[in-house]
Amino acid sequence: MSLAVFLILAAASVLFALLVVFTKNPVHSVIYLILAFFAIAGQYVLLNAQFLAVVHIIVYAGAIMVLFLFVLMLLNLNMDTEPTQTGRWKLGAAIAAGMLLVTFIGALKGGIQLSAVTDHNPQVGLVQNLGRVLFTDFVVPFEIAGILFLAAMVGAVMVGKRDVTI
């Protein structure tokens, strides 16, 4: 039962992720991306990590993709306004993306393990356990991430601030 659900969700997330890339219309891409996020949230639920699933939806589908959509709507991208890429640009992009791929493969080659996690605790995704883990074992990365976000926020305010005060 859960395997079937997993397979459906996995297929859906891969399908939607591919559609994100292959759709011409950027707004459609964003919508496929949201659907892909939903599929991934479903995976979290399968792992009994409802907290992560919901936070994933709130943060990614609910906030970040809204911003994406917001910007896309303002830009009004379509076929007519899309600048035609020259061959040189395409070549450069292909080389850059290929190098990124090689880097990823190189990084993951040693550490990757395809065996199933057997000692998976089904309670680990619940809020209490997650909070406890975040504030004990992972407190330093957690706080550093917080500082990073604060810095990003201050930076955004600085960028957004106008030179002339009204």
Partner: peptide, 11 residues
């Protein structure tokens, strides 16, 4: 959180 999540999708 479920409620927050779904209200955020309403937009």
């Amino acid at each position: 959180l479920y409620i927050l999540g779904f209200t955020s999708l309403g937009v």
